[in-house]
Design a protein around this nucleic acid. Structure first.
Lengths: 329, 329
DNA sequence: TTGTACGCGTTATCAC
DNA sequence: GTGATAACGCGTACAA
């Protein structure tokens, strides 16, 4: 059923070495090369990756490890990684950890035993397995979360994101802007708080630290956080949702409470393809998720290609999206 | 760096055959097995998948080929496939085709040269590559779209889905219920039209065929279709969105036109984790995407395990979701 | 430029 | 139950 280089060699009347060379871009006389290609096509031959991997010690597959396949932010990243990878001849395996360290470790182990070329990971934390994977000299690019792993990183300027979202609300006249952010152990969640604080400071306004609530960067947690925020009795007339899913949760609670924009200010860090279903005016801070994926994959491929040197960090900038709906045609 | 069974065998004082047997669950005396396990742990050994694949003729990875990673419907499927696969010891490679036949073919080729155990595919159409992949006797389960490939299928009762959504609107008193569906070459899009038509028929109502518009099952196409529907001048007081993304597009156009529920009836076949952001009362027909993924993977694994016989078809049922927001706690 | 021969790490088939 | 040993399909010294 499946043909191998021997079959092709026989059909083309050359040695297997020649066939191999043709498929690896090495010098072969034109006529022989043509004979090989013809035979290969005729036999529907395609090189066996397992054998190649076994021989070469690494495959042309890279793993992308993300916390949640159902979050558009991460799938956008995935597309970016895929784009770059494909261009360079690599396939991408998408691995979903559900925020569980154990699953992350499991995928790392698979990456090892499958001899994968490298890993792009949205790290959950500095887990032993991740640390040792990096330490073992394998190729890793961390993305979205700062962790001092000693690996290359592609990050977001989260402080700027927090500042932009909060600033827009303050500039719109709101004075008590709350923040529903994520788990404080995540640099992304943490930095957005710093940005939130900075927005007040830059305008000479006083900060009320009780207006920060930590959710889980998911819908359910954001709902709870938003309820808590409204329940404290503290004065509040606007809120920044720390990420896209938090935006949904927070908005649901607000809508139910009848406190909707524009009376109550609302901004989301991150984007939802779905935001435009809501007629309310929502401030959105766009995050270059896809671009991050592209750059991460590029860095990884670069390393695989033998690029040495210490860990590099690339930080991308967010941008305020126009309030106008973007699909006007 | 990476140890192999020889190292383990030496460390444990046994033959490599014994090591192999331990790792494949074959009978080995308890004490020797323990020695092997200890040595393996000490050496941080994990079996080389490339070698195993080369030898066994197939790997423990299955490919899931979907048209759009950013569509929650397909990512929900992906989670289902992942769940089943993982339980059976398989990894899943997520492949995104963007509705392009060529990309689908490419992934199929990769599946071959990587010796993947099998493929779960949301087929674009009966392309030559897909047909020949199936014909070559490899394991395939088609999902979501009916195509007569000669492979196992996991489908949805799309006629029922169309009927339910349309019926709910008719029963709510609307009399001119339109339909924004997908490309007519997709069985899913086509069958939903049949269901739409049936809902009228069952109630003894007359059908106005001009109220069906074919989009592309994506947001942009649905916007156009919805505009077209409103622009015909035909009487229309409600609409069924043929899938989740169409729901967004159609709703955007409606909202802008000021024709919103409940005055204008609106139903979506499919679900959006995001629908609840909208205060409008929207009828939703829930689709068991995750379940479909689970069943598809189960069928595939079953085949891989040697289950013979002709192609099987499994059809799952949709269900009307309560209009109440489902996150009430 | 081309061909021969060996090894990559594992599983499976033998004998024992 | 256990151990030698022959594949699996490919890449690459090395020799020609």
């Amino acid at each position: 059923m499946t043909s191998n280089i021997h079959d092709v060699a026989a059909a083309a009347g050359v040695s297997i070495a020649t066939v191999s060379r043709v498929f690896n871009g090495q010098r072969v006389s034109p006529d022989r090369a043509k004979r090989v290609r013809d035979a290969a096509r005729r036999l529907n031959f395609s090189p066996n990756r397992a054998a190649r991997t076994l021989r070469r010690k690494h495959s042309e597959v890279i793993a992308l490890i993300i916390p949640d396949v159902e979050n558009p932010y991460f799938t956008a990243m995935a597309r970016g990684v895929e784009d770059s990878a494909q261009r360079a001849g690599y396939s991408v395996v998408l691995c979903n950890t559900d925020d569980q360290d154990e699953k992350e470790s499991q995928y790392l182990r698979i990456a090892v035993s499958e001899n994968m070329a490298g890993v792009v990971v949205v790290p959950n934390g500095p887990t032993p397995d991740l640390l040792s994977y990096v330490a073992s000299g394998r190729h890793v690019v961390a993305i979205d979360r700062q962790l001092d792993l000693g690996a290359d990183e592609v990050l977001l300027d989260n402080v700027a994101a927090g500042r932009m979202a909060t600033g827009a609300l303050l500039d719109a006249g709101h004075r008590h802007v709350g923040l529903v952010t994520g788990p404080s152990h995540l640099s992304s969640a943490h930095d957005r708080v710093i940005g939130w604080r900075a927005a007040y400071g830059e305008r000479g306004l006083e900060v009320d630290e009780t207006l920060v609530e930590h959710g889980d960067f998911r819908v359910a947690g954001a709902r709870e956080a938003m309820r808590a925020l409204l329940g404290t009795g503290a004065e509040i007339d606007a809120v920044v949702a720390g990420n896209n899913l938090s935006g949904i949760g927070a908005f649901q609670v607000l809508a139910r409470a009848g406190t909707v924009p524009p009376a109550f200010g609302f901004a989301i860090i991150g984007d939802l393809p779905f935001t435009t279903m809501v007629s309310a005016r929502i401030t959105r801070v766009g995050l270059p998720a896809r671009e991050m994926g592209i750059r991460a994959a590029d860095m990884l491929i670069d390393r695989i290609g033998g690029h040495g040197g210490g860990p590099r960090t690339l930080t991308l900038q967010p941008e305020i999206l126009p309030v106008e709906e973007d699909w006007t045609v």
